[in-house]
Design a protein around this nucleic acid. Structure first.
Lengths: 154, 154
DNA sequence: CGCTTGCTTGGAGTGCACTCCAGCGTTCTA
DNA sequence: TAGAACGCTGGAGTGCACTCCAAGCAAGCG
């Protein structure tokens, strides 16, 4: 169990919110890159690329230099995956990662960034619902038209 | 007022569902590319590119060869805009445009395409709601942490 | 021990959706 | 009627997010 300050120091995210289960319990959590590929659905290329651009905390290495991911890294990748499908640019996620690495004094900035993201997500959901309505009406139209001979507008 | 068959023939979409108002009434609907830019928020480059790749029906031209868009074109661009923000690839939208141009006998295929899109949209909304929940918990965490001294995990 | 499979690196390549450019013709305003 | 602003084309360029490559080291197995 690590303190908040420790978590901030070693670059992992402080609040690993979801109480989801990890493949291996804390303490025995050491995953090769291909295991992480299997868990996340990302490619090894992408995982290495995330690291190069600064989107990942420092990843442990084996004595021969191979990457060994831990549970906190898996949690981080989970968050990144969620943010990615909101349409958030990778550069913004890197910004957030930098704030996490920088330590506790960046809480306010992290809050602002997440709050802005939240607004974006809310707006996107609204847009999608709007699109859904249009789609539903068109689908109804084609369903009706397939049943009756094409003769009426709407 | 055009019949369904006419609409299908001239390549516009048969069911222009939303009863939204156009800048000019049918009959006087003739817009330059820059007017369409103003209405849609797209760039002129993008409008010409959409035409080149087959995403637009045939656009009228003035006697000197300049584009003159009509209300139906605006409706089509509105639909394209909505589909675009669902994340649908442009190639799929081109496919739908081809089906519309091909005529009435493609109703079943259009239905299938829209139905598949609908499922995608529903799935994306669910994903976004999931992300929103994570975001909300993190935001709450940082809001609390900003108030109290950083000392407790969560 | 040899073989296969996996992991390493920097750098180059890919696909998508635009985005811009040069060089020219057209239309509008004073 | 001059000048600015707008529109035309084919083709090249851009930015993003990966995606792949070559060459070499490392690990597990019969």
């Amino acid at each position: 169990m690590e303190t908040l300050a420790e978590a901030a120091e070693n670059g992992t995210d402080v609040c690993s919110v979801p109480p989801e289960r990890h493949p291996r319990p804390d303490g025995q959590d050491s995953y090769t890159i291909s295991e992480v590929v299997a868990f996340t659905g990302l490619t090894a290329h992408t995982l290495r690329w995330y690291e190069r651009i600064g989107l990942m905390p420092h990843i442990d290495r084996s004595h021969t230099g191979q990457r060994r991911y831990c549970n906190a890294d898996l949690d981080w990748l989970d968050l990144v995956g969620k943010l990615r499908l909101t349409g958030m640019p990778v550069a913004d996620m890197v910004r957030y990662a930098e704030l996490v690495r920088a330590g506790d004094h960046t809480y306010a900035e992290r809050y602002d960034l997440l709050e802005a993201t939240r607004r974006d997500v809310l707006a996107r959901i609204a847009e999608l619902k709007d699109t859904l309505a249009v789609l539903n009406r068109k689908i109804d139209f084609y369903a009706d038209a397939g049943r009756a001979p094409a003769s009426e507008r709407r």
